Simulated assay, not measured.
Amino acid sequence: MWKHRCYHDYERRRLIRRILLGILAFVGLVLLTIIVILIILRPTKPRFTLQDAVLYAFNLPPSPTELPPPTLNLTMQATLSAHNPNDGIGIFYRSLDVYVSYRGQQVSRAVVIPPSYQDHHDITVWSPYLYGIAVPLPPYAVDAVREELNTGAVMLKVVVEGEVKWKVGSWVSGTYHLHVNCPAYMRLAGGRIGGPERCGVDV
């Protein structure tokens, strides 16, 4: 009786080990297949271009005193395009926020771009209006704004922050952080960029 029970426990443990090994082998095979597919297809990060930008307002409203420091008002419309250069790989865009940056500081509210899917070689275009009202600036930025108001031109950056996922067949990857930086050198008072500007993209 005791030998029979020991043999039964031994067979049960061996069966459990086989099941676990089978599950691990299956998961490993799936991961290996995905890795091989990604290596063969070599997913490339999306390409962003600032197609156009119009600056309607960029000013420091007059203040009777320097306390509190002057604040910035900004209004801009930016036209951005995103191109998926991959063969056989789709891109899901999630939680995209677009805003304007000046000397490393966000100077407009973030505009949320609705989630979208981009098939291979597709191009998607967005044209959000970007506003900054009474944006507080550090002293160095206030001095820079005054100088650029005198010269009649300003260097701004249109920034996109968000998340992307890759899609191969029915498989969808995990989430990757997306950071896009688009330089925009613009004339004031209704000025616009001279032509399409390629953006820096980090994934």
Rank of each mutant, 00 (worst) to 15 (best):
A53V: 13
A184E: 07
Y7Q: 14
Y93D: 04
V164Q: 06
N181F: 10
L149W: 07
H177G: 10
V30Q: 11
K165P: 00
Y185T: 12
H83M: 12
Y176E: 10
V27S: 03
V125C: 06
D52M: 03
C182N: 05
R146P: 00
N86L: 02
R187N: 13
D97A: 05
R94D: 01
L21F: 14
Y176D: 14
P61F: 03
R146E: 08
D143H: 07
R103T: 13
G174F: 01
N73G: 04
L96M: 07
L24S: 14
D143C: 04
P64H: 00
K157R: 15
V164W: 00
H179E: 01
P85N: 09
W2F: 00
R12K: 06
L60P: 13
A53F: 07
A134K: 08
F92I: 02
L50N: 08
T124R: 13
D9H: 02
N73Q: 09
R94I: 05
S108M: 04
L21M: 14
P70C: 07
Y185P: 04
A189W: 10
R12Q: 13
G191A: 04
S108E: 10
H121Y: 06
S81C: 14
G200E: 01
F58V: 00
G132N: 07
F48W: 02
R13G: 15
P114K: 01
S95T: 02
S101L: 02
R103A: 12
L29A: 14
S108H: 05
D119V: 10
V203W: 08
V36P: 00
V54F: 00
L38H: 06
V125S: 03
R192F: 01
V172E: 09
G191I: 03
H4D: 06
P183S: 04
S127T: 11
L50D: 02
G22F: 13
D9W: 09
E11K: 11
P64D: 07
Q118K: 02
Y10E: 15
R18H: 08
G169F: 10
V201W: 12
L137S: 07
V160N: 14
P68H: 02
N86P: 04
Q51M: 03
R187S: 11
V36W: 15
G90K: 03
R18T: 09
D143Q: 14
H179F: 08
R17L: 15
A141M: 10
